[in-house]
Nucleic acid binder design. Structure first.
Lengths: 339, 339
DNA sequence: AGCGTTTCTGAAACCGGTTTCAACCTGCAA
DNA sequence: TTGCAGGTTGAAACCGGTTTCAGAAACGCT
């Protein structure tokens, strides 16, 4: 029950294995008769070239390493899906390692990928500095997804979180809201920091005073957001809208309001960030900043593909766009809710 | 800028590469002095053995192939995450290929994985028959996840969908519901068929007549479910509860009711299937059959690991359990809704 | 026919490890 | 001192492909 090798094909077709290799890869012309015999034998035995041997011989493994962050977020899942889809029709396959959003863990994951001689690297999010990355990845083609690494050499595919936070907040302000609560993301995540920066920018630009007491703790989970909004309600502070740093947090906020019988959007408006699948089916459907997660994964994997073929690629800044649905209402003038 | 090989280490340590290999793998005793020199050189150069070469030499690639179905479902994503997590601390890495839930596509994906000489295979869902699988995978250790393949030889890790459908329906019946609508899944999916079977069984067992007109089209998406429930409402058929074949469909159903101002659970109760993350934050929180998706991926990857080490593994049937939350109300006797 | 050029082709080296095998070195018992 | 078992070691074969190189064959031309 031996697996069939290129030599077996060569024997059957009465040629040398060099010739078999040549027709399989089309690297040189071969006499039509021999080519036919080889193809016939290949087909007859269902011969599958050993990718491992091939990789060793020509130095290209046809695999690309993907560093994921196993944080169970639909956003990161969608990126991974996009990567898989983007590579689907190429000869490359993705191999995944989890970095757990933790520096040392990420470093060893990348080392493992390099040990497997991946031809390129896709880094999704993570905690590594630009220096870390250039030091470890050396000359390996690498693309960073879903965050911007401040280094001239590293191509990134990411969305402008500051802008996203800005347009969401501005939309609320344009609808008459002034007392807007913000549910933060994880403090150490750049995404979270940027979205908050956008939030602040919209306030400053509108000349509205930002009430620090309305900036709530959050960690990107629904449960934490629910707690924070609960606390906010108990504080009796006035607020007419909530901007959540991601959709999960918006879900948590919405549930907290539901529990207290506070109507959305009649009494309180909500805006999220991500536009995950379920958001369009929240009651009411959630107005949120759409991040093209799957497209990012797709784009990045194709870009890496280009990079491998010597074409240059420069960082790509995507803009999130506001998906206007039904969770935001124009604030009725002169009748501020919960006065 | 050559990468450093085992031969380089051997030269520096003044030994043969055989000896280096031996200390790296601990396959034989080596004089402490040499061992120390080798280790020192290894460390000094940051030597990472070439996994590709190693694989070719000893026939084990230390990778396991994962056939996913890129259907953007949180359920399947969670399984993949579980697989990655389960393999994280082993020397194995997962390599992913998408089968698109389409027979020929799945076959070529598996062939590609075999060409990469994966040591084992994890098949998540899919459309392949048991014969297909045993024919293609031959003697390759294989575990099927999230469905049962009726073949004695193939180990599967899956949940009992019939039972899940049964307990969900029974719960509704116990709460006094008789006119229960069912939102189907994709007709060709065994999961969908099984859940419906469970639905029917609960009816039969309770001696209640099942109204075929309340069995609605569905395809596991929220949007389709929303349409179906809309149509149902327009039909003016009486119903007091909805059992959706998955949570996404439950979301769609909930939105349709919201649009018509039909209260959940006061007027209509809803039960879902999956228990995806967002379900606990629906308004009201969704009562649903929990499928341990991530655990399944985790369990399967570890089981495959055992299989690779010669330990036997037999199929594992997991039971879904009902997560009782707030989307089901006891039907008030003698006041059937929407009469 | 003779010659140069181009196209095919197979032998052998190579990729970077592991593993077999035989030689070598101990130490210990006879 | 010799014999032998057991532990170390390096040379070489091997895994299954690709690629270089040089020779052979086919071709076109004068």
């Amino acid at each position: 029950m031996k697996t069939v090798t290129i030599q077996d094909i060569a024997n059957v077709a009465n040629v040398s294995k060099s010739t078999v290799s040549r027709v399989l890869n089309g690297t040189a012309g071969v006499h039509p008769d021999k080519r036919k015999a080889i193809l016939a034998a290949t087909h007859k035995f269902g011969f599958q070239p050993n990718v491992v041997a091939r990789s060793l011989a020509n130095g290209r493994s046809l695999t690309i390493g993907v560093l994921t962050q196993n944080i169970g977020s639909p956003f990161y899942d969608a990126i991974s899906q996009g990567v898989i889809a983007g590579l689907q029709d190429s000869t490359y396959s993705p191999i995944f390692m989890d970095g757990q959003w933790e520096r040392t863990s990420e470093i060893s994951a990348i080392k493992a990928l390099i040990g497997r001689r991946v031809d390129g690297l896709l880094l999704i999010g993570g905690a590594l500095s630009g220096n870390d990355i250039s030091r470890i990845c050396k000359d390996l083609p690498t693309i960073v997804i879903a965050r911007q690494v401040p280094s001239r050499k590293l191509p990134c595919v990411f969305v402008d979180n500051v802008d996203g936070g800005y347009i969401a907040t501005k939309y609320l302000i344009e609808n008459g809201h002034r007392k807007i609560a913000f549910i933060q993301g994880l403090p150490q995540h750049q995404d979270a920091i940027d979205r908050f920066a956008g939030f602040c920018r919209a306030f400053k630009e509108s000349g509205i005073q930002l009430d620090r007491r309305l900036v709530l703790d959050g960690d990107f989970t629904a449960i934490k957001a629910e707690c924070s909004v609960n606390r906010l309600c108990e504080s009796r502070l006035k607020f007419t809208a909530i901007f959540a740093a991601n959709d999960a947090s918006a879900f948590g906020a919405r549930l907290a309001l539901y529990r207290r019988n506070i109507g959305v959007p009649d009494e309180v408006s909500i805006v999220g960030f991500d536009d995950q699948m379920e958001s369009a089916f929240l009651t009411p459907p959630l107005t949120t900043v759409r991040q093209p997660a799957q497209e990012m994964g797709n784009l990045a994997s194709r870009a890496l593909f280009d990079l491998l073929n010597g074409k240059p690629f420069k960082s790509q800044l995507l803009k999130g766009c506001l998906q206007i649905r039904e969770s935001v209402a124009r604030l009725k003038t002169r009748s501020n809710h919960r006065d």
